[in-house]
Amino acid sequence: MKQRVLAVDDSASIRSLVNYVLGRAGFEVVLAEDGQEALDYAQQNTVDIVLTDINMPNLDGIGLIKGLRELPTYKYVPLLVLTTESGTDKKMEGKAAGATGWIVKPFDPVQLVSTVEKVLA
């Protein structure tokens, strides 16, 4: 059974990159354009890990994380923030909302895979 990753980013190129890199590493990747789309998906489906951008229209990454943690099925799903903010503010805001950790963009494909694998190990 492939492990399913929900990747949320408003940038199509980042989405395809994550899709391509994780897809090649053997994950099933589900893509969403913003927090709302991701949350709608999550209400109907389960995934093994969520990767989300912070800055997005409609519902941002922080809002998504809060929303996901309220769902019983997502209480113990790792939620990683993909963020260009290297400053601690956004990371801590994400953590406070319930994020597991973060990956700082720009990320190297190899490191993206190894981080996701490590969290799911």
Partner: peptide, 15 residues
């Protein structure tokens, strides 16, 4: 406007 600049920055670095 900010998001667009932000995505260009992030994507630019990634690629």
């Amino acid at each position: 406007i900010f998001r667009a600049a932000h995505s260009i920055k992030g994507g630019g670095a990634t690629f």
